[in-house]
Design a protein around this nucleic acid. Structure first.
Lengths: 244, 244
DNA sequence: GAGTGGTCTAGACCACGGA
DNA sequence: CCGTGGTCTAGACCACTCC
């Protein structure tokens, strides 16, 4: 057990090496979300370090959003909460005020090449990509259209899954069907105008102001998993951030 | 020295009480940015706790962005870096590519009442507000217009300061002239269209798409200090965020 | 009651910065 | 060189969850 750390750089602080080792085990799916990690005491024994060192490693992983700790219960793999949070950007309380879960529908699925997006995903420029077009609507009114690019190799099961089996959220699907866990995402917001296809999909006039959000979602191993571009009507856009 | 903690809630964890006490001393301006806080050892002795407890309090304040620590040098009050970061939202590399510091010009200064904004600032609705209109430009081209509301009482020195003495950045001014330190801010982004006065100030046609950013800046005591609404051309808007 | 994480202590040694 | 924060240890007791 103890030599699990020997491969990592000896110059790094102990807690960092423990953290790296745990990250790798998390990435390999060693623990589900229902099942707690070994306790601090056990981990300390496994790695041959003091409990405080394990604690520091765990706290780091909590800070990075990989783990959740709960007193009396244990330490768990965290479920990222931004999965459907794109809708955080848009006003949801359309009329009734009740928060309705947005419905998703896959408009098309193709496999092809795209040099630029493959590069963005950290792949060989010629790598085949699985490309989805997706509509998300609230109360049967289209609110967003999304273009999604995935590594066709890693997401192979999705290329045969029936389109109506995709459900409303993709990230749980990635996890269940492909064993890939989204941990972090970076988004870029900018402003544009609806091109004819976008306008048609959103049911708004061509040229209407839109907000465009590009997202790159990263897996537990910090490599890009998904590229996504979402279009929505600018008038419905509303976003809040905290600065320090 | 040791009884400095007696006023705080006895049920709170020790490190929390130390943290609260330090926050208050920071808010009172006990340490400048050049001068380090007392060392961990000294603080531990002052508060009668173990060094690890002080460390946990300090780490919390670092996480909140109030402090910076540097090995071998000491622990320092942090200078928030978002002061001129509104321009993070907009494409700066206009032509030349070189990053030019944006110039600011105060267009007007008035004192008046505004119930809603006073409430936003946590003031009595009838409290007098100091309202500034400000233009910010890059290479002599207006890029942003801002409306800024402040508590006239707390920012009293600003009501008589010559308009051309305001400089390009307000937060250092708040600190130097009023002794008020901005620590955190919350921003809301939305898209709109330029009204005639905004269009005139930005030198764009009325009705052009704009990005509107509302900001509330908070002081070290976590109370709102400043309300600000910035308008810029939407086509120049570009913003990146990280989600977890 | 048994086991978990949360708080707290009291030390040791190391790495870095500055005089 | 001394003093700083950074790392690490080895315990203690408490608060919480679950059976």
């Amino acid at each position: 057990m103890q030599d699990r750390l020997t491969e990592t750089d000896q110059r790094l602080p102990m807690y960092q090496r423990v953290k790296d080792a745990l990250t790798q085990r998390l990435a390999e799916g060693e623990w589900s979300r229902a099942e707690p990690l070994p306790s601090e005491t056990v981990l300390a024994a496994e790695y041959g370090v003091a409990i405080g060192t394990v604690r520091k490693a765990l706290e780091g992983l909590v800070a990075e959003g990989l783990l959740e700790r709960q007193q009396g219960r244990g330490t768990f793999l965290r479920r990222p909460s931004f999965g459907n949070a794109l809708f955080r950007f848009f006003r949801l309380s359309d009329g009734s005020g009740a928060i309705v879960p947005p419905r998703a529908r896959i408009l098309s699925r193709t496999i092809g090449q795209d040099e630029e997006r493959a590069r963005t995903l950290g792949l060989n420029p010629a790598a085949p990509l699985l490309v989805l077009f997706r509509e998300r609507s609230i109360q049967d009114r289209p609110a967003l259209v999304e273009e999604i690019a995935l590594d066709a190799a890693r997401f192979q099961p999705l290329s045969t899954l029936p389109l109506d089996a995709f459900g409303d959220l993709l990230y749980p699907l990635y996890e269940e069907v492909c064993g890939l866990l989204v941990v972090r995402a970076a988004e870029t917001i900018r402003f544009s105008q609806a091109t004819p296809p976008i306008a048609a999909a959103l049911n708004i006039p061509t040229g209407t102001a839109t907000a465009v959000i590009d997202r790159i979602a990263y897996g537990i191993d910090a490599r890009p998993l998904e590229w996504r571009r979402s279009h929505g009507e600018a008038a419905r856009f509303n976003y809040t951030i905290d600065l320090r």
